[in-house]
């Protein structure tokens, strides 16, 4: 979904640029609380993994391809604020080193594929944790569903931006239908990859997964309360 230069006009690009700067600035402050000696080294690796996975474009229907965006994955593995930072680094490197995603669209791309997918992925993930059984096996499931939904929502945000400052005068309802349709399919891939990646780490070291902390904490408390009874 890398937006190139020229798709959005200058005022819209400036606005998303400002939004991205604010989001990254707030994340720099908030990420401090998510990062300790155990999780900090993992955060850089998660960013590298998201970069690598974005190179693996998979085919979807109708001569189109898609790839992981990674916001939900990063949020669940290392925390949402750190997730914004990790994905933002990926988009900056892709833009400057690989000419993928316009330079004037860097703020747009961070807003769409970083901030939006992290926010949607994380909020859906947390909401599902409330209703699903409190087991670590549910963490990859909730992460996958959050990831699936994050992609069409990011596509919708692009449509909103295009309605405000798109370069061409095209029917927005048709754009919305096309964007959400294809990105729902890409979202399925996003969900599967996120499920597998989170599931792999959960299988070996659930304590390293940020999104599993609340489940593990609850489990520890449970053990303590049953000790006196036994």
């Amino acid at each position: 979904m890398h937006v190139p230069d020229g798709f959005l006009d200058a005022p819209t690009s400036l606005a998303t640029g400002a939004l991205a700067v604010v989001a990254v600035g707030v994340s720099l402050r908030k990420a401090r609380h998510e990062l300790d000696d155990r999780t900090a080294p993992l955060a850089g690796l998660v960013a590298a993994f998201v970069f690598a996975t974005q190179m693996i474009t998979f085919p979807v229907a109708g001569g189109t391809s898609g790839h992981l965006l990674g916001g939900a994955l990063a949020a669940v593995l290392v925390g949402p604020w750190t997730g914004v930072l990790a994905t933002s680094v990926v988009f900056v490197v892709q833009c400057l080193l690989f000419a993928d995603g316009g330079i004037t669209a860097l703020g747009t791309n961070i807003t769409l594929m970083g901030v939006t997918t992290v926010a949607v992925g994380w909020l859906v993930f947390r909401a599902l944790q409330v209703v699903l059984p409190r087991r670590t096996a549910m963490v990859p499931v909730a992460a996958g569903i959050g990831a699936l939904l994050s992609v069409p929502v990011a596509a919708l945000v692009f449509v909103l931006l295009y309605a405000v400052g798109g370069a061409a005068d095209i029917p927005i309802d048709r754009l919305a239908g096309a964007m959400v349709g294809v990105h729902l399919l890409i979202g399925i891939g996003e969900g599967v990859i996120t499920f597998l990646a989170v599931g792999s780490i959960i299988a070996v070291r659930p304590d390293l997964v940020y999104g599993a902390r609340s489940v593990l904490k609850a489990r520890t408390l449970e053990v303590r309360t049953t000790v006196p009874a036994a």
């Binding site: 979904m1 190139p4 230069d5 020229g6 085919p59 391809s65 964007m179 294809v182």
Partner: peptide, 30 residues
Amino acid sequence: YAASAPDGLTKVAQDQGFADTQTDHATDDG
């Protein structure tokens, strides 16, 4: 071995007729 078909946004831009509004990337020669 990754798929080389246009990505979701690129394909939509082609279908909806605004792909040609894309301008050159400043680091295209990197």
